[in-house]
Computed example of a mutant assay.
Amino acid sequence: MVEYPGYIDIRKIGINRTGLTTEENCRYSLTINIGGGEKRLICLLMNPSGATESYSDNTVNNFIGYAKNKKYGEIIILNVLPIYATNDKSAETSWKNLKDKEYHEKKNLKVIEEMINHESDKNDIVVSTGFVSGVAFKEKVKEIYKLLANLNNTCIISYKSNENFFREKYCTYHTSRKGEFDTFTKNPFKFTIDYDKSRNKLTLKSSDAKRFNFTNINIRA
């Protein structure tokens, strides 16, 4: 177990989850008060690892440190898969074994929608999903991108970015991999998302020509 930094008051941590008295061990959101500014950092990650209202994990602590340095007042952790697991392989297994997947998937999307739209002018959004095989991960990411589309926010690719990974899977690398959180903090890659509902088309737009060859990626939503 990993302790939260000493400046975090765990009594003010908000968590939306199941699993206290059931086999369905899911977490839909984790809200942590940092103190300081009015801006809010929303982090969209792969799946919950270990963080609860009592104990943190390394990835969450990394983002807490980043948020404090950037003087965010609050950090919210959301996930593509709401199931607790320690890596992509265990996430795949746990998700496949989860009962009532449709219920949890819908609830997770609803929580994401509510969080990103609440006082959206105060939000900065980090996208750092990684990828999980065998769970229709691309489809789940596309549904989330629809929610993120057309917001006046910046979506940031964390970790080392790879054009083929982004183009083929529509996903960003996860910051916890190989200890590369510094890549995110020192040289984040920025992109925006448009969604044309009438044509059911998502467009991932990037202007970072130094790191990518493409201007945008069109996805059939």
Rank of each mutant, 00 (worst) to 15 (best):
S198D: 15
Y7T: 12
D208H: 00
M115A: 13
L78Y: 00
S207F: 10
A51S: 07
S94C: 13
N79S: 12
F181W: 05
Y145H: 04
E143D: 15
K101Q: 13
G14E: 15
N117V: 04
K146A: 15
I144T: 06
Y84E: 12
L151W: 06
F191R: 03
Y4A: 00
N117S: 14
R220I: 11
K201G: 07
P82V: 06
K110F: 11
D88V: 05
L148A: 13
N69D: 14
N25T: 01
F131N: 03
L204P: 02
R167E: 15
N79K: 05
T192S: 13
T129N: 01
I116C: 11
E114K: 13
L30V: 07
E113W: 12
G6Y: 07
N61C: 08
V80Y: 01
E180Y: 02
R199F: 07
N218F: 07
F181L: 10
L147P: 06
L147C: 12
S133H: 12
G65K: 07
A221H: 09
W95Q: 09
E143A: 15
K160T: 15
D196W: 09
N33F: 09
N150Y: 07
N87I: 02
R211M: 10
T129V: 03
V60W: 00
N47D: 02
L45Q: 00
E38F: 08
K107Q: 08
T183W: 08
F181C: 12
K186E: 15
E102Q: 14
N108T: 00
E119F: 04
K70R: 14
Y195K: 04
L98V: 11
Y55W: 05
F184M: 04
S133P: 07
K89Y: 13
V135W: 09
M1Y: 10
M46H: 04
T21L: 13
D100K: 14
A136F: 13
G36S: 06
E92S: 10
K71P: 05
S54N: 08
K70Q: 09
K205Y: 15
G130F: 03
K190Y: 13
T129K: 01
G134C: 06
I116E: 13
V135I: 11
N164F: 12
T154N: 03
T59Y: 00
V111K: 06
S54D: 12
N61R: 04
L109R: 14
G134E: 09
G35S: 09
K210R: 10
I144W: 01
R11W: 01
A91E: 02
V127M: 00
L30W: 01
H174G: 05
D100F: 11
D9K: 12
I13W: 02
N25D: 14
A51W: 00
G65W: 02
T172W: 01
